[in-house]
Design a protein around this nucleic acid. Sequence first.
DNA 1: ATAGCTGCAAAATGTTTGCGCGAAA
DNA 2: TTTCGCGCAAACATTTTGCAGCTAT
Lengths: 130, 130
Amino acid sequence: MKYSKQRELVLKTLKESHKHLTAEELYHQVREVLPSISLGTVYRNLNLLVEKGEIRTLQAPDSPSIRYDGRQDEHCHLICNSCGKIIDIDIEIFDPFDALVHEKTGFTVAEHDLVLRGICAECLKKRRGT
Amino acid sequence: MKYSKQRELVLKTLKESHKHLTAEELYHQVREVLPSISLGTVYRNLNLLVEKGEIRTLQAPDSPSIRYDGRQDEHCHLICNSCGKIIDIDIEIFDPFDALVHEKTGFTVAEHDLVLRGICAECLKKRRGT
DNA sequence: ATAGCTGCAAAATGTTTGCGCGAAA
DNA sequence: TTTCGCGCAAACATTTTGCAGCTAT
């Protein structure tokens, strides 16, 4: 793959944001640095980066667009039903889980995609205060 | 909500299929029974049924369309990376999980959306035979 | 009678792609 | 100089919506 400043910028911006941006959101961010970049280029590079395993995708329920995650390593997402915030969290206890699934179904698990929905600490506090 | 035979048919067809159909796929199935039904009506009713909690949605990775699941109760999905099959599975051990998440982050979990990817028993067998 | 649902077609949304030019190797 | 990525715009795929007529209550 050939170097391009557009791809470098897309990757850098996503990683440094520590958020779960849509292609459109990322497009607006990178345009502040490189105003000539096109939305098509953002999409093309995001797809390339996903294919190369440099970033991940996340399909948040109730969001029509795919969201992109700058973290390479497997992790879970907490989505607050109240404020919509998406929180990253590491889960290390999947092994007994996979063993159980294999025992029950013969299925060999390779990847986990876990999204938990509920109420984040801040929103719960606010709600209690009401 | 008013009764409609279109909605009843959409719900019945999805539940009896025991599959995870897209709106388009479901549209083709219901048209065999009610040829005059429109795709818009299928979408409208699926959205209504999701809102009422009668069915669920499932965003399978690598599928651009939303898939619909006739099961009302919370369950997990296994997706085979080899044949693409989607398998339903019940998981009863989420409680210690939720407790761990709460302890770590203060987040109160209400719903779980777990998709596991890997190789199903049949594909593994075939692969071993090769 | 009337509120709500339908079919139809158009619009809206999100993403991909073909093309000719310019930048990287 | 050749190859690949770019910007642009058009195409595409999926889902939603406005409207006028019909159906269940």
